[in-house]
Simulated assay, not measured.
Amino acid sequence: MSWIDALLLGILEGLTEFLPVSSTGHLILLGSWLGHEDEAAKTLEVVIQLGAVMAVVVYYRNRLLDLGRGVLARDPASLRFVMALGIAFMPAAGLGYLLHKKIKALLFGPMPVAVALIVGGVVMIAMERLQRKRGQEGLTRLQDVTPKRALIIGIAQAFALWPGASRSMSSILGGQLVGLSTAAAAEFSFLLAIPTLGAATVFDLVKNGQTLLDAPGGMLNLGVGLVVSFIVALLVISGFLRYLKRFGLTPFGWYRIALGVLVLALASR
């Protein structure tokens, strides 16, 4: 893998991590197209997400600092929100730990990604239509995420362990399911990315980091991918929130279906 390949992966990761289109799925498809399907490439496709995590930390730095001060002061609202994040984090963390090897062995390929893209797109469009039918904007405050709602969001996020399903899509749909507005669900999804993606990248780096670093240009590729994904993701976050408030999830659903069908058509040739 050249540093240019790592640059392309970093751009794609930053563009897609917080959009409900599956960054991992897109990275697998791009890696396959570039001819990188070894263990080092698969590890880079996971670890590169750390750049996007740092973008969330920087974007929400003031809120995170306030949250940290609230926790130290034992503010009930801050403690409840941290508890909600912890509860939502646990299902994906537990299943990811147990199924990590099988997921990478069986699902890191174009066909599983295509299936997940199509199914996820259909579900997104159906959920948006249901939301419009209800005629309610939903709860708009992150403080409304109770432990029970957080657990449901966490269970929904766990479906994103299947590459192509999208962590962002799954957690946003979970938020909508428990009554959050699309924008509030997206914000909770962004903050939930910090423990979820942070744990996933550190876990994969500890287990397979040496394989990545031993590959030709491994350290350079990792550095390029992380820096580029951080910069691009930071630019994407605020624009995505504005877009969601105006257009919702439906356009992303149709994009997912179209991409999934294209991948299946190319794979069947």
Rank of each mutant, 00 (worst) to 15 (best):
Leu98Asp: 01
Met127Gln: 12
Thr146Gln: 11
Pro91Trp: 07
Gln136Arg: 14
Arg129Ser: 01
Pro110Glu: 10
Thr146Phe: 13
Val115Asn: 02
Thr146Pro: 07
Phe89Tyr: 02
Gly96Trp: 00
Lys104Arg: 10
Gly96Thr: 01
Leu139Ile: 02
Ala156Thr: 13
Lys102Ile: 10
Val122Glu: 06
Ala126Glu: 14
Met124Gln: 13
Ile125Val: 15
Leu95Lys: 08
Met90Ser: 10
Ile125Thr: 04
Lys102Gln: 12
Val123Trp: 09
Gly120Cys: 11
Leu139Met: 05
Met127Ser: 01
Gly138Arg: 04
Ala88Cys: 11
Glu137Ala: 14
Lys104Val: 10
Glu137Tyr: 15
Ala150Ser: 01
Pro112Ser: 06
Gln157Lys: 03
Lys101Tyr: 05
Asp144Cys: 01
Leu95Gln: 06
Arg141Thr: 07
Gly135Tyr: 10
Leu139Gln: 12
Glu137Pro: 03
Val122Lys: 09
Thr146Ala: 04
Pro110His: 15
Phe108Tyr: 15
Val113Leu: 04
Ala92His: 07
Tyr97Trp: 09
Leu95His: 09
Gly120Leu: 03
Lys102Arg: 11
Ala126Asn: 00
Met111Gln: 14
Ala156Trp: 08
Gly94Tyr: 03
Leu142Gln: 03
Ala88Ile: 01
Pro147Cys: 07
Ile125Met: 09
Gly109Ala: 15
Ala126Phe: 13
